[in-house]
Design a protein around this nucleic acid. Structure first.
Lengths: 208, 208
DNA sequence: TCGAATAGCAGACCGGGTATGTTTTTGAAC
DNA sequence: GTTCAAAAACATACCCGGTCTGCTATTCGA
């Protein structure tokens, strides 16, 4: 009873375990019956915790479905880019890397289940949009030094909206039944298109 | 009792009147104490209607604050543009017209009160963002014929995000104390900047 | 072993929103 | 004018997400 439990603290581990259990149960129920048709009371009951406990871990019902759906840290990527790279090139490289990288099948299935749930509920879709809003703000912050507040806000808005669209398109392909490989290849093309549009403007779109 | 009341129907007029009363009372209370600190029961009581009646007119509490905040019909503007005009030029012209046009002071005050309320409540801000999302979708629809679905989605996203940013910047200036004239002039400049960025891309930004 | 945190609990409570069945008002036909 | 059906408004009870309160049981550190 002295050493054994001290890797991360028994307490911590149990907490994490409870949190995972709640999240997993919630996601399963959402996937089975849809976000709106599941009540938090049911989730709490199925996870064998009290409702108050559930809300100690997750601030809202929505956060149960959006757990871990943070999106990339655009502002960080831009802020940490090498000095000789434009911010658009840094973001383009990041997106290329994502499109090229392969995700383990199990993770992908879990992610897709979550995306399906989100896409089926207007409330969740809106909440997910809200997450992007914050990204936009912090990206604008980072760009302000270089371009001034107004141009930075406009650029950040364009970039964030484009990346959201890329993500949506990608998920739609996957949900529509494309193989992960096909969707990845399509995404790679779309990434180039998106950044070409951002760099060169809508009137200079060529050959797509 | 035969002719007198038939301009629009007594019934219709009373209904509209009730609706206006509810909306006005709600906006006043929101402006006084903030969106979250006012309950729908209070609004119903102050407007002298039952809660159920209130919800017969407005589907949600949010819709009370967002009543009439539809935004422009971007898709319509693009769809109805003259054949020799690019869609960006059509939108630019529309924004220029708005920036040049003057709003009656009373309307502007009412609008600003509403904007203040919205800006003070995260829930409302999110809901307002959701309205934009729909605009984006219909704009993408209209552009699909010309550019294909992916490019159209990206373009619509960029345009919608830019216009939202213009609107936010404009309102921030007004809320910050700028005169309507100054804000209008600044908006006119920002409109040109935004559309230049959209047309020519972020790497070709010049002289702003 | 003891005491301080703290996780967890049950249950009352609040506010937004819906459903139900009833009363009142309105519009129109007689 | 009287009458009658549509529909506006109502009171009320209810559901659900979310908070608060006060309590019990674990866990941790000394």
């Amino acid at each position: 009873m002295v050493i054994v439990a001290c890797v991360a603290g028994l307490r911590e581990r149990k907490k994490e375990q409870t949190r995972q259990r709640i999240a997993a149960v919630a996601l399963r129920l959402f996937a089975e019956r849809g976000f709106d048709a599941v009540t938090v009371n049911e989730i709490a009951e199925a996870a064998e915790v009290a409702k108050a406990t559930l809300f100690a871990y997750f601030p809202t019902k929505e956060s149960l479905a959006l757990d871990g759906v943070g999106g990339d840290d655009l502002a960080g990527i831009v802020a940490r880019r090498p000095a000789d790279q434009t911010f658009l090139d840094a973001l383009r490289a990041h997106c290329r890397a994502f499109a090229a990288g392969q995700m383990p099948d199990a993770d992908l299935d879990a992610l897709l289940a979550r995306v399906r749930v989100i896409q089926d509920s207007p409330a969740l879709l809106n909440a997910a949009n809200g997450l992007l809003y914050q990204q936009r703000q912090s990206l604008a912050q980072v760009l302000t030094d270089e371009y001034g507040p107004t141009a930075a806000a406009l650029m950040a808005a364009q970039v964030a909206a484009s990346l959201l669209t890329l993500q949506e398109t990608y998920f739609q392909r996957l949900l529509g039944g494309s193989s992960a490989q096909d969707a990845g290849r399509a995404l790679a093309r779309d990434v180039e298109l998106a950044f070409d549009l951002l760099e060169n403007g809508l009137t200079h779109a060529e050959g797509h």
